[in-house]
């Protein structure tokens, strides 16, 4: 069972590494932000699998913290960058 958990976690970590490509390329700020959201979701998945692997349920609190705060970034991006057209910079 432990091997299964480890394989899943490594797979999810590699997902983050793949996502870095989009952060690097962009081109728009929105693309990068969506990748960050993907990282947040993947990170939550890793946390939940880790909670099962280590048998420590308090890790779920960390996952929820990531979860409830992820919305802030999106709203902030939409509000803050709303009036800017060329956001490729």
């Amino acid at each position: 069972m432990d091997v299964f958990f480890i394989i899943v976690i490594v797979f999810l970590l590699l997902n983050i590494v793949m996502g870095l490509f989009r952060v690097w390329r962009g081109p728009a700020v929105a693309d990068r932000l969506l990748t960050t959201q993907l990282f947040g979701t993947t990170g939550m998945a890793i946390l939940m699998v880790l909670a099962g692997y280590l048998g420590e349920l308090t890790l779920l609190n960390v996952a929820i913290t990531f979860n409830v705060l992820a919305i802030l970034l999106v709203i902030s991006l939409v509000k803050v960058w709303k009036n800017k057209k060329g956001e490729t910079k």
Partner: peptide, 16 residues
């Protein structure tokens, strides 16, 4: 922008 978004990813890696 790359710096900022890579920093977010860094925060996640650090939390883990």
């Amino acid at each position: 922008t790359q710096s900022v978004f890579l920093f977010f990813a860094f925060g996640l890696a650090l939390a883990l």
